[in-house]
Amino acid sequence: MQINVDVHNYMETLVGQLLAQEHFADRFDNEQLADLACLALNQLRPVYIRHDIDFLSALPEDRLMVLKQHAETAIAVALSMIVEDRRKNRDTDIPMTWHATRFDEDPELEWYETPVMKPKNH
């Protein structure tokens, strides 16, 4: 098994579809599109799957619409970060981020994220 071949993050597919639209492709170069994709995907909860068709056949339409909306929102936020980039020299500046882990506020797993089997007690 090769994880990069056999398993993929479905959110990458959604973000890629959105960034392939003409208004992004005409406005941004490949470097900026890659930055947009990274910034958007870092905001999204990954949805790892093996086969799109199997995943989509079991996914309710309203949940797919929610995932698409999340991808659109993440791209909008990423877009504002690219457009309003305050760094003068992007090649030498090192971005800094701060993150505070909040385990209490983590949402519950979705139906497709819940492990199928429970671990055996030893």
Results as ranks from 00 to 15, higher is better:
Glu22His: 06
Ala34Thr: 11
His122Asp: 12
Thr13Asn: 02
Ala58Pro: 00
Glu72Ala: 15
Asp26Thr: 13
Trp98Phe: 15
Asp106Pro: 00
Ala58Met: 07
Leu14Phe: 06
Met11Thr: 10
Glu108Asp: 10
Glu113Asn: 04
Leu41Ile: 06
Phe55Met: 03
Met1Phe: 12
His23Leu: 11
Met11Asn: 07
Ile3Ser: 13
Glu108Arg: 09
Glu110Thr: 08
Ala71Val: 09
Pro115Thr: 02
Pro115Asn: 01
Trp98Val: 15
Leu36Phe: 00
Val47Glu: 06
Ala34Gln: 09
Asn121Trp: 08
Val83Glu: 08
Val66Asp: 03
Leu64Asp: 05
Asp62Gln: 12
Val5Ser: 10
Leu33Lys: 02
Phe55Gly: 01
Arg27Pro: 00
Val83Pro: 00
Pro107Asn: 03
Arg63Tyr: 07
Asp6His: 09
Gln32Asp: 08
Asp26Ala: 11
Glu113Trp: 05
Leu33Pro: 00
Leu41Arg: 06
Ala100Ser: 08
Arg63Asp: 10
Leu64Thr: 01
Cys38Ser: 09
Ile82Gln: 03
Arg90Leu: 13
Tyr112Arg: 04
Glu110Pro: 00
Glu84Asn: 06
Arg45Asp: 15
Ala20Tyr: 11
Thr97Lys: 13
Met65Cys: 07
Phe103Lys: 15
His51Arg: 15
Arg90Phe: 05
Trp98Ser: 12
Lys68Arg: 14
Phe55Asn: 03
Leu56Asp: 07
Arg27Tyr: 07
Trp111Ala: 06
Cys38Lys: 08
Asn42Gly: 07
Leu33Gly: 00
Arg63Asn: 03
Val77Phe: 13
Leu44Met: 09
Glu110His: 05
Ala37Thr: 02
Tyr112Ser: 03
Gln2Glu: 12
Leu56Trp: 07
Met65His: 13
Glu22Thr: 08
Ser80Arg: 15
